[in-house]
């Protein structure tokens, strides 16, 4: 019995750094592994091969966690290839309040992300059906809405009125952009007014809410779609979770302010997985055009 305890077992030692502690195979040396090949799912911890993850539209193959994606990827997976015409690509933010650090932030972000602002607008096709669109960029100052985001979206709605086209907006935003003060807050009214004008013409507006959509964007165009669709488990809310917890001095349950919570409380029409989104949008558009089946 005691003897067993002292039996020398054979162990393989692994050189595992904290960043890539996913290497389990003892025959693989960690030195030659390209860390950029793998991503750890923040929800279930599964180690995913990036190629597989990309093929699955950045959705975890194990737990269906929807990773945040940028505007470029969103456009690629939603609209028909080569169908896109972009609007107002040269519009840029200024620093109208002289807010410290803002100009520098704008400059470095447009350089690193290759886009000028937190929304990309344009016109494109979904399975051959023409729509105008806005896709927010969650990586650009948290997708926050300043003058440019408000102006680009409003112009896009106005162009959709001229062209008599439906609008689809993919929302992802932390809300109004603090660095532009009241000018940012006013954009909520501006875009909402444009939504109303578009709506008055009998045109369809679909709002697609993705993670995260909060604050001034929830309190304006994100909540104003004729049809509102959300990706699974996206954070959707008005006030920030921490702010509420501080106000009520209680911890909030995990499911608070998620897509599922919003569906239950009647504020969105449906939840659609990313790999079904294009099909869902296409089906809705077809019914609105009175096109049945594959005509």
């Amino acid at each position: 019995m005691w003897k067993d305890l002292f039996v020398q077992r054979k162990y393989a030692t692994l050189k595992v750094t904290k960043k890539n502690d996913f290497i389990k195979d003892e025959n693989v040396s960690t030195d030659n592994i390209d860390v950029d090949m793998f991503t750890k799912c923040p929800s279930c911890g599964e180690i995913l091969i990036n190629m597989d993850l990309d093929k699955n539209l950045k959705v975890c193959l194990k737990c269906n966690h929807h990773f945040r994606i940028g505007s470029k990827e969103r456009i690629d997976i939603t609209f028909d290839k080569d169908s896109i015409e972009y609007f107002d690509t040269n519009m840029k933010s200024l620093n109208p309040l002289g807010f410290p650090g803002y100009s520098e932030k704008l400059k470095s972000l447009s350089k690193s992300l290759g886009i000028n602002e937190a929304v990309v607008t344009g016109r494109g096709k979904i399975e051959g059906i023409d729509v105008c669109f806005g896709v927010m960029e969650p990586n650009f100052i948290m997708g926050s809405m300043g003058s440019v985001v408000g102006e680009k979206l409003s112009r896009m709605f106005e162009r959709a009125i001229e062209m008599k086209l439906p609008v689809i907006v993919f929302c992802a935003s932390g809300g109004a952009r603090m660095q532009e003060g009241m000018l940012s807050l006013s954009q909520m009214a501006k875009v909402s007014a444009a939504v109303k004008k578009h709506s008055n013409k009998g045109l369809l507006y679909i709002s697609v809410i993705t993670d995260p959509t909060t604050g001034g964007v929830t309190a304006s165009f994100a909540s104003l779609g004729d049809i509102i669709i959300a990706e699974p488990k996206a954070t959707i809310g008005f006030a920030g979770r921490r702010v509420i917890e501080q106000t009520i001095k209680q911890k909030l349950p995990l499911e608070f302010q998620t897509s599922e919570f919003m569906l239950e409380h009647g504020f969105i029409d449906m939840i659609a997985d990313r790999n079904k989104m294009k099909e869902t949008l296409h089906n809705i558009l077809k019914i609105h055009m009175g096109v049945k089946g594959n005509e």
Binding site: T218, A219, A222, S223, I236, G237, F238, A239, G240, V243, I244, T247, I248, L252, F256, Q257, H265, G266, F267
Partner: peptide, 12 residues
């Protein structure tokens, strides 16, 4: 900013 406010759609 509170639970009821969010449940009843402050944003909307």
């Amino acid at each position: 900013c509170g639970v009821g406010a969010e449940e009843r759609g402050q944003g909307e």
